[in-house]
Design a protein around this nucleic acid. Structure first.
Lengths: 201, 201
DNA sequence: GTCTATATGGCGATAGAC
DNA sequence: GTCTATCGCCATATAGAC
């Protein structure tokens, strides 16, 4: 992923766009980061806008959870939810700045965002149907399945998006402590969610 | 809040900065929005940076929850948490775009952020001490109090910050439906949190 | 305090040689 | 494909009249 020029540009552009955002990023800085000339950026991607869209698309597909795993597996619902949370937090740990980037740039162009989402292959109705089956069987409490999905995503993503705030407010700027806290949250979130939704027998 | 020129500038700047962000905002647009000349902005605030910092400070104090209500009241813990969630979601409904703005600009200057936070008068240790008392009394499950606080804030704030995404993915771009959903979440979040933490008698 | 006019610099984008 | 040089524009900021 760094051999040819195009890939070098993509790597450099992702770094700079994530750090500075679309408006704050400079084509010159991307060129420096890639070790090439500014004019080459336009040779490969025509405009800053096109380059940005390529990056946003890449990042979005990297960070959007594989929700389908929630729907398809055969194990019990609590197992599936626990596995999903575990995998998803691990993914966010590897790409801790991507949620902030997505949230930052999400409002820029609603139509473009819609296009990206459509082509990302997620199918919420299938997940909701599965959750409703579980509710009918009485394994989880009755609730709006959209709430449940949003809750799981909120609990997982928000602590990464608000990292600088929580890091200062709750951890006195101790970044290592916050990293450790996020690792422990894998289990903490699982317990919290399962306590909230599992019916007791 | 609109009589003198300085206030007109603050109102206009808040609107434009929230919509476009610090880097995307233009002093000319703020001047137009305020119905004054561009040079006046510099007369009152010296630079774009200073104007932005004034706005960020205002917005931050508007949106940061009055956490102390969680700690000080005399009613039972479940009542206090329920009231807090209710009030906080109502606040977010009135200022739906402020969370996105804060998250967007939070990483710009960590030292400035730290200053703002220090002067905001929140005192987490007091809240944690209160939560630990409840755990010792057995009214709520034993857990890391920081997790509980972060969970409540995540469940409340994230659906506003990720509004464009959820609106498309889950509500087919029907904004009224999403607004209604957020209203219903006041109760949904309460039930979710209380089920997760209350010990059954 | 408020305006018009302008200084000054930096940006995205292109032309054109190699 | 890759470079240097440059165009044309627009941004923040200031000077100076009223």
């Amino acid at each position: 992923m760094k051999d040819n020029t195009e890939d070098k540009i993509l790597v450099a552009a992702q770094k700079v766009f994530i750090e500075k955002g679309m408006d704050g990023a400079r084509m010159q800085e991307i060129a420096n980061e890639a070790g090439i000339n500014k004019a080459l950026l336009h040779y490969y991607f025509r405009s800053k806008q096109k380059l940005f869209e390529a990056i946003f698309k890449m990042v979005f597909s990297q960070i959007f959870p594989n929700l389908m795993e929630l729907a398809n597996a055969n194990s019990p619902i609590d197992k599936r939810i626990a596995t999903f949370i575990d995998k998803y937090i691990s993914l966010l740990q590897k790409h801790a700045f991507l949620p902030t980037f997505i949230l930052k740039e999400m409002n820029r162009d609603p139509k473009f965002l819609a296009t990206i989402i459509k082509s990302s292959g997620i199918n919420p109705p299938e997940i909701f149907a599965m959750l409703e089956r579980e509710m009918n069987q009485g394994t989880i409490r009755r609730m709006d399945p959209r709430d449940l999905l949003i809750n799981i995503l909120s609990l997982s993503i928000f602590p990464f998006a608000a990292q600088p705030l929580f890091n200062i407010v709750l951890f006195n700027d101790d970044k290592a402590a916050y990293t450790q806290f996020l690792e422990a949250r894998k289990n903490s979130i699982k317990e919290f969610v399962l306590n909230a939704i599992l019916t007791k027998q």
